[in-house]
Design a protein around this nucleic acid. Structure first.
Lengths: 188, 188
DNA sequence: ACCTGAACACCGTTCAAGT
DNA sequence: ACCTGAACACCGTTCAAGT
């Protein structure tokens, strides 16, 4: 009945710990310095050990992006649905991306993993369906595209400074988001 | 009066040739394999020679992205202005990005260079102003964000396949673009 | 002014070998 | 099943030295 005893306080390696450590290093040191070697060192392990749990660096980046998206989804008010949900989701993603130095760039370069993204998408579509969003696939795609592009510009330091003095960021994001929602059937 | 004679058919190195060569290698081999070493080799020069003409790899990526944007701008019908121009510009960018394997990702990770982007932006705003776009900064930003995010999803192979079977890409892009334009004052 | 040669401190990935 | 040690083929960047 006893679980196999662990040799120390440290748990076994495992894919989850690698992903979590990767996300921590992403915040602390940025995407450029996010190397498998750095992750391995933070976990007290040799670099090739990671390859038992992940296929390659590309897959790890995909897993990291999906994990963050899942967290964002978990943090939303569970009672909202439909267009309200869609817009709250977009705002939460933008907030996350803009608070992070490189999360938007991670999402931009990472590919969805085999099972992961489909599962997230079905959670989203369930919430959209309840509220009766008209063309949920298209609406989600449009909102998500806008939000990702927006986050990328806003976390580009040179671009951000240039933009912040030319316009009100929050207002512009809301205007764009509202316009897309309206275009896809939202009567707000 | 004679220019200093060149030692061969090859011109001097120069920033422009580095940028052009970088863009060619980006198309041929993708962003992952776009190294300063590969560019130097393609130019028949040693890698450190590049540093006489560029500050670092980051600046080169910015220059490359701006050069492509300039080309896209040059290729547009010069007679359109206002909202028509804005939408044609968005379509041209999306086309460029989607035809290219990694251009969208280049734009996503690159930062604007000191003079370059400002100059491009002023060209754009001149065209928007003629046609009387209401909040040109905000409208441009919203359209550009949407287009970049869209291109990123559509050039992500796994994502693209998943999306293409769930919806009509062209129709969805047009719907999103039209929605944003409408939200920023376009009466089409 | 512009470029080379050599070096430094890194990378991701593979693979035999250990336990 | 899971991890180490050693190696391979790369990176961006610096800097003295050449022309």
């Amino acid at each position: 009945m006893a679980r196999p005893k662990s040799t120390s306080v440290e748990e076994r390696l495992g894919r989850d710990r690698i992903v979590v450590t990767g996300l921590r290093l992403l915040e602390d040191h940025g995407l450029e310095r996010l190397s498998l070697r750095a992750i391995a060192e933070a976990l007290g392990v040799q670099t090739p050990a990671l390859y038992w749990h992940i296929r390659d660096r590309g897959q790890l980046l995909g897993l990291m992006a999906e994990e963050r998206l899942r967290q964002t989804l978990d943090g939303l008010d569970p009672s909202t649905s439909g267009y309200d949900f869609l817009m709250e989701f977009a705002r939460a993603i933008a907030r996350d991306h803009i608070e992070s130095r490189d999360l938007a760039r991670l999402v931009a370069i990472s590919a969805p993993t085999d099972g992961g993204y489909v599962q997230i998408q079905s959670r989203i579509h369930a919430r959209l369906a309840v509220g009766g969003v008209e063309r949920p696939q298209q609406a989600l795609m449009a909102v998500f595209s806008f939000t990702l592009g927006w986050s990328l510009f806003m976390t580009n330091p040179a671009m951000r400074e240039h933009l912040s003095q030319a316009m009100n960021p929050e207002g512009t994001f809301e205007a764009g988001l509202g316009a897309i929602a309206a275009g896809f059937g939202y009567h707000g």
